[in-house]
Amino acid sequence: MSGQNHEHHHHVSTAGQLWAIATGLIILTIVTVVVAKFVPIPAPFDVVAAISIALVKAFLVAAFFMNLYWDTKFNAMLLIMGVAFFLLMVLITLLDTMFRNDIVPSF
């Protein structure tokens, strides 16, 4: 393998692309604020809405600012694995904290 031809796998984004992503992120930020402050969504679904928008933003940053879209799949897999293990930690912990019965009622 010759080390000379770099261009073949280092992706270079155009300035237009980067600006488009940033604009998208700012619009989504405004949308989150508007939805949270002015659209009345009943209790658990307001969080769902906020997190969904945050996930879209996170996807944009990871895929296009962090270049995962063009990178080897393994790096993307690492990110997904990190998030997956975080979710495992949360879900299994909730299995305890959400289902405790009070041993001494009203304690």
Binding site: M1, G3, H6, D71, L78, L79, G82, M89, V90
Partner: peptide, 27 residues
Amino acid sequence: VDSDQQFDSAKLGMWVFLVNEILFFGG
């Protein structure tokens, strides 16, 4: 061996480190 290997290694290492960060904040 060459700068490609060095670049790819550094990047992989950084991603592994970022996984760390995710679980650090994860707590």
